[in-house]
Design a protein around this nucleic acid. Sequence first.
DNA 1: GCCGATTTGTCCGTATGTATC
DNA 2: CGATACATACGGACAAATCGG
Lengths: 243, 243
Amino acid sequence: MPKAKYDFIYKDLKNKIEAGEYGFQELLPSENHLILTYGCSRNTIRRAVSALVTDGYVQTMQGKGVRVIFEPTQQTSFTLGGIESFKESALRNHQTYKTKVIYFAELTADEKIAKKTGFAVNSQLYYLQRLHYLDNRALILNHNYFLKDVVPFLTPEIGENSIYEYLENILHVSIVTSKRIMTIEKMTQIDEKYLELGDYNCLAVVSSQTYNSDGIMFEYTQSRHRPDYFRFQDNATRRPALH
Amino acid sequence: MPKAKYDFIYKDLKNKIEAGEYGFQELLPSENHLILTYGCSRNTIRRAVSALVTDGYVQTMQGKGVRVIFEPTQQTSFTLGGIESFKESALRNHQTYKTKVIYFAELTADEKIAKKTGFAVNSQLYYLQRLHYLDNRALILNHNYFLKDVVPFLTPEIGENSIYEYLENILHVSIVTSKRIMTIEKMTQIDEKYLELGDYNCLAVVSSQTYNSDGIMFEYTQSRHRPDYFRFQDNATRRPALH
DNA sequence: GCCGATTTGTCCGTATGTATC
DNA sequence: CGATACATACGGACAAATCGG
């Protein structure tokens, strides 16, 4: 399915690692070997391996080889970094999901909103509050701001489904970059009203700015997560991760 | 200082973006132009630009150019993702820091510890509890586990300074990959004793496994952060980020 | 709408350096 | 020391997307 060769090889190696064909702490076949296996150039192999490195699947060692550092048992599902919609991650984990729009409005960004979201003052925006349910539990309360120029004709009905599907399939807006900041905040009255927080008095807040393929920021979202279901995974590589 | 050409170009472009020489929403010079500027091959330019993409500084657009999406005003300091020691980030932000070792022990991993940390059962470990102060406020309580095989002769004195400096400069252990998971947990009695949590009843917990250049996991750390000072930044790129 | 110029994306082959064994 | 393995760099070819005439 992937048309790019390096992407095919990347996915193929990834599958084999996940299946245990290349086990934890083992070495991958050498580059020269992989070149013969896949019938491609060295650059293409290196690109595929490089992607595995940034995913935290393997680690390259000059002069030695490429070591698998992926443990199938350690892996948990849910947010793995990368950009993924709520619907996508729910489906991937075989959970039932539902989204409810609890507020829908059109507004013009004033100073305060501009500063908070990063949109220019006087930008025309849609503002939604959406509640995300997983297996019938209200887990996430989203405050979404969308730039009308890029996302026209937004409705509560679209909000109930997946806005990302609307963007990609109908508007053909492709999402490229997302800058996120995670913090912890005290709960507000709105949080308390809609999320079952138990005896927690704070929650995880993920603020994100999303850019389309023209490099235009068209979305600002603040995601407020029920703390006991919040989990964020991340792989960091020191300095030159081959880039 | 950087000996690799692509790294020099990467840093040079990055500096110019941060200085505003290439402003927000502007396009970088085309690849062909940069080739002439830096006197190198196209691959080398593309590698440098690729690194800027993963850093969230620019976004490439096929047929159009490379757009700068870095806003100097929006940038805040502190954790930017990547691996950085407490001392490094404190220094970078011109803050005073101090580390206090409140517990130091050697132990052998039992079933429970093995499961929690990811070390093998019967691994010989050092276990430290360390308290990190920034500007005289206790912000982070760390539970560190180090594999003795890789980190021998660890002492409380070294723990008071930077363990990472000891690793890199004395033992010549280079840190390559770190897998992190962020969650929110209720505070414990130990947290309450050492961190000033105000009226928060929970805190940010970052659990990380760190690998050395041989692909051996030698550190498991659980970092417990005072919530009002916790902040984690991240850039996500959808699918092929050039990899 | 077509065409050519520009710009980024993919892929190949080769040469040389550095680290490991 | 030689063989092996990854790292860096160069050059060239063609594809795909964009833009202007």
